[in-house]
Amino acid sequence: MNKYLILCVDDEREVLDSVIQDLDCFEEHFQLEGAQSVSEAKDIIEDALREDTHLALILCDHIMPEQTGISFLIELSENSETNKAKKLLLTGQAGLEDTVEAINHASLDFYLSKPWEGEQIRSVIKDQLTQYMIEHEPELMPWAPVLNTEKIFNAIADNRVSFGE
């Protein structure tokens, strides 16, 4: 299986630790990393790309000291090496205009507000990762037990039908 990265970005250490703890169920199959700043996140992404690890999903806070989460997600969507990643905003402070800007730039796949429930965030991440794999991973079968099994099997069936035509 290819290597994939889930990256969580939040400048508040307690929030970041909590998010990572909520997502540790994905750690067996994905590289799960946390960053407290956009510059740290960029370093992690660069290292991952050098190791041929794909950024599958980024979960980012909006209000951060050096750059807003939305501007970072827009930047990632404009980069050919990161534009395919699922981009999620986890924040309690993004205004409607900021969120609309991110959606209009096709750089936001999902919005979660703080505070969140662990089961809610795991469900959203699972759905987003399932969609990412269906769109970008040629070998879907190994992901069936890990992600949304029904959607993975449907995609496999759809692929067989389109190859058979």
Rank of each mutant, 00 (worst) to 15 (best):
Y111G: 04
Y111E: 05
Y111R: 05
L112E: 07
L112N: 08
L112T: 08
L112V: 10
L112I: 14
S113L: 09
S113Q: 12
S113R: 11
K114Y: 13
K114R: 14
K114V: 12
P115K: 04
P115A: 07
P115N: 03
P115S: 04
W116G: 11
W116S: 10
W116V: 09
W116N: 11
W116E: 10
E117D: 13
E117W: 05
E117N: 13
G118A: 05
G118N: 08
G118F: 02
G118L: 01
G118Q: 04
E119A: 06
E119K: 11
E119P: 03
Q120Y: 15
Q120V: 12
Q120G: 07
Q120A: 13
Q120C: 08
I121A: 08
I121G: 06
R122F: 00
R122Q: 15
R122L: 02
R122P: 04
R122H: 02
S123D: 07
S123L: 09
S123I: 00
S123G: 08
V124F: 12
V124T: 13
V124Q: 09
V124M: 11
V124K: 12
I125H: 00
I125D: 01
K126S: 11
K126G: 06
K126T: 13
K126L: 09
D127H: 13
D127C: 09
D127P: 04
D127E: 15
D127I: 00
Q128M: 10
Q128P: 01
Q128D: 01
Q128G: 01
Q128H: 01
L129V: 13
L129P: 11
L129S: 08
L129Q: 06
L129Y: 06
L129I: 12
T130K: 04
T130S: 14
T130W: 08
T130M: 07
T130A: 08
Q131A: 13
Q131R: 15
Q131I: 04
Q131N: 15
Q131W: 02
Q131S: 15
Y132I: 00
Y132M: 00
Y132H: 10
Y132K: 03
M133T: 00
M133C: 04
M133G: 00
M133A: 00
M133Q: 00
I134T: 05
I134S: 02
I134E: 02
I134F: 03
I134A: 05
I134V: 15
I134H: 01
E135D: 15
E135T: 12
E135Y: 07
H136T: 12
H136D: 08
H136V: 01
H136W: 10
H136M: 03
H136R: 10
H136F: 14
E137M: 01
E137N: 09
E137P: 03
E137S: 13
E137G: 05
P138A: 14
P138H: 14
P138C: 10
P138I: 09
E139Q: 11
E139P: 01
E139W: 02
E139T: 03
E139F: 14
E139R: 09
E139L: 14
E139S: 11
E139G: 03
L140S: 05
L140C: 04
L140Q: 02
L140R: 03
L140V: 01
L140A: 05
L140I: 00
L140M: 05
L140K: 03
